[in-house]
Design a protein around this nucleic acid. Structure first.
Length: 589
RNA sequence: GGGGGUGUAGCUCAGUUGGUUUAGAGCGCCAGCCUGUCACGUUGGAGGCCGCGGGUUCAAGUCCCGUCACCCUCGCCA
């Protein structure tokens, strides 16, 4: 080892020892006779002093040091003179009086300094990620990520789960997200697909008798990026045999409690609260509601039916819904102009026809552009239904159920933040269960799997497969953290006949099913145990546990919104020879 | 694919209704001074295709059109 200690560990107890520290020059303060240097590594910072007693050669060498040079300083640990202790530094009670210096490597002047106060633009950080990752904040996040994964691995190991790796080069399954494809050289004209998840392999492992499987798995989905979505991401993937939904949820409850305790020092009450999908959509307009605050969606369709307000009446009478939220104290906070902006927001982003608003005055009277459309009795009814108090702002959307969900979910999220209805540091864990098996795809005129095509229906809903698939509920469960889907799983179909029935509903006939999933259908016929599992989005867990709003900060080398890597400049062009070997010709633009 | 935001010195930003100097500041960088600093201080200096291309105008960092990059978002994400 070139060093005897790290830059973060020296304390008063080390005084008198001769030590060698290795690290990067974080900053230097040249006082002429004395030179102070902060040396940084991932453990912390320590101050090295080159003083008037040092020989001129050492002083001159030390003076030549610049930001981010890599150095090895040897010296004696000394207490800092009285009045010069730095309480902001863990090592602030001591300093290292240098006796020798080795410059291990120089550095160009960095485009930004990892120790600087203001953060450069994200593109610059991504381009020079090695500098960005030197920042204590990034190191804190990546170490938090490590600890979360460690907790997961330990927990499942203790429960007897076996870590099995599954292939990255697999077969394309066109359902679901767009695949990343990898051309085959040996099988010219054919392609592998990178896994969207190890779903089928883990089911095969259950059939193979592995009973409890776990893996930290890379997954790839070629879809557009978001603040919380990367094309390449990491799942904690697991599967269990001889279990029901209850069992998987129970195991995961234990993990959540342990992670919250070990990572955040929080005691989480178990079992975690659960609500059904229908309840979530009805109350929050979304299948992953943020339960850190109320602001529930309230239905007033019955009132709307009675009123003379055409917007409301028409929606109520055409099978739509009228729903609203009551923003506490929103009347003063949202001016006419601000409400216009909210209206534009729901129209543009969620396709709502408009936004109807009412304000409750200090005397309890209800005002607003739409107020004249209601009788005083109906206004009172609305106010009571939404439990509105003076000073509250009421916002309504009248539309098809789906549109009211999206628009009011968007509003709820926005108002929750803008009105500070919750502590941004609070953590809330819950389950949403009993998702629909299918959603109707209007474009394809076809039922589509809500989760994936291997999801088992609730036993009592099996007859609905033939009669009313839309009402069929799945043995599915999503883990929700602070309004983010942090994991999702299902009990799987373990019976080839039932599997084929679901495929049929999804428009996958026997021939197609055989071509795509033949191996699974085969395997299901050789003694498949009942099984189910879940996958957790590790990047999102880190994001939520670290209280960040951006998944890129949780990943060492993330991609930009256009799915490029600014450091390596991937994706890049390839040599024509490589294309020839693969039998690929690029279409001319 | 649609909507929005940002782009000025190495970095973070300011730059008024289009016109006063040679486009500024802080940090960083370079050189000097300084025995206790830790956002050190201090003196001096270097550093600009105002993202790129076109247009309007006597005059464009500023207005218009296009384009590129990054970010947010809708669609998309079994």
């Amino acid at each position: 080892m070139l060093r005897t200690h790290t830059c973060g560990e020296l304390r008063k107890s080390h005084v008198g020892q001769s030590v060698t520290l290795c690290g990067w020059v974080d900053s230097y303060r040249d006082h002429g006779a004395a030179l102070f240097l902060d040396i940084r590594d991932r453990y912390g910072k320590a101050q090295v002093v080159v003083g008037p007693d040092n020989d001129p050669e050492l002083k001159q060498l030390a003076r030549s040091l610049r930001s981010e040079f890599v150095v090895a300083f040897t010296g004696t640990v000394a207490p800092r003179p009285e009045g010069t202790v730095n309480p902001k530094l863990a090592t602030g009670e001591i300093e290292v009086r240098a006796t020798s210096l080795r410059i291990l490597n120089k550095s160009l002047t960095p485009p930004f300094q990892p120790g600087a106060m203001d953060l450069p633009g994200e593109d610059l950080r991504l381009k020079h990620r090695y500098l960005d990752l030197r920042r204590p904040e990034m190191q804190r996040i990546l170490m938090l990520r490590h600890r979360i994964i460690k907790v997961m691995r330990d927990y499942f190991d203790e429960l007897g789960f076996v870590d099995v790796e599954t292939p990255v080069l697999g077969r394309s399954t066109p359902e679901g997200a767009r695949d990343y494809l990898v051309p085959s050289r040996i099988q010219n004209g054919k392609f592998y697909a990178l896994p969207q998840s190890p779903q089928l392999y883990k089911q095969i492992l259950m059939i193979a008798g592995y009973d409890r499987y776990v893996q930290v798995a890379r997954c790839f989905r070629d879809e557009d990026l978001r603040a919380d979505r990367q094309p390449e991401f990491t799942q904690l993937d697991l599967e269990m045999s001889f279990v029901e939904a209850e069992d998987v949820i129970g195991v995961l409850d234990g993990l959540v409690a342990r992670a919250a305790r070990e990572i955040l020092g929080l005691q989480v009450k178990l079992p975690l609260p659960r609500m059904t999908y229908d309840e979530a959509m009805e109350t929050y307009g979304h299948d992953a509601p943020d339960l850190r605050f109320g602001l529930k969606l309230i239905d007033v369709t019955d009132v709307a039916r009675e009123c003379e307000f055409r917007v409301f009446k028409a929606a109520a009478e055409s099978g739509g819904r009228v729903r609203g939220i009551c923003a506490p104290g929103g009347a003063a906070k949202y001016s006419r102009k601000a409400i216009d902006e909210l209206t534009e927001f729901v129209k543009h982003d969620f396709g709502a026809q408009g936004l109807v608003w009412l304000k409750v005055e200090s005397d309890g009277a209800v005002s607003g552009s739409a107020a004249k459309n209601f009788t005083p009795e109906l206004l009172t009814k609305i106010r009571e239904r939404l439990e509105a108090k003076p000073g509250d702002l009421l916002l309504f959307v009248a539309d098809k159920f789906e549109v009211t969900c999206k628009a009011l979910y968007g509003l709820r999220k926005r108002l929750g933040a803008e009105l500070s209805l919750y502590d941004p540091k609070a953590m809330n864990f819950s389950w949403v269960v009993e998702f629909p098996m299918f959603a109707y795809d209007e474009e394809e005129k076809q039922w589509a799997a809500m989760h994936h095509p291997f999801t088992a229906p609730r036993p009592q809903d099996v007859p609905l497969l033939d009669t009313d698939p839309g009402r069929c509920r799945a043995q599915a469960y999503d883990l929700v953290i602070n309004g983010s889907e942090a994991g999702g799983g299902t009990i799987r179909i373990h019976d080839a006949e039932a599997q084929q029935k679901v495929f049929n509903l999804l428009g996958i006939d026997a021939e197609k099913a055989k071509a795509r999933f033949g191996f699974l259908l085969d395997a299901l016929q050789y003694g498949a145990p009942p099984h189910g599992g879940i996958a957790l989005g590790i990047d999102r867990w880190v994001m939520l546990f670290a209280n960040l709003d951006n998944i890129r900060d949780c990943i060492a080398f993330p991609k930009t919104q256009k799915a490029t890597d600014l450091m390596t400049e991937a994706p890049g062009e390839v040599d024509p020879k490589q294309l020839r070997e693969l039998g690929i010709k690029l279409a001319s633009p």
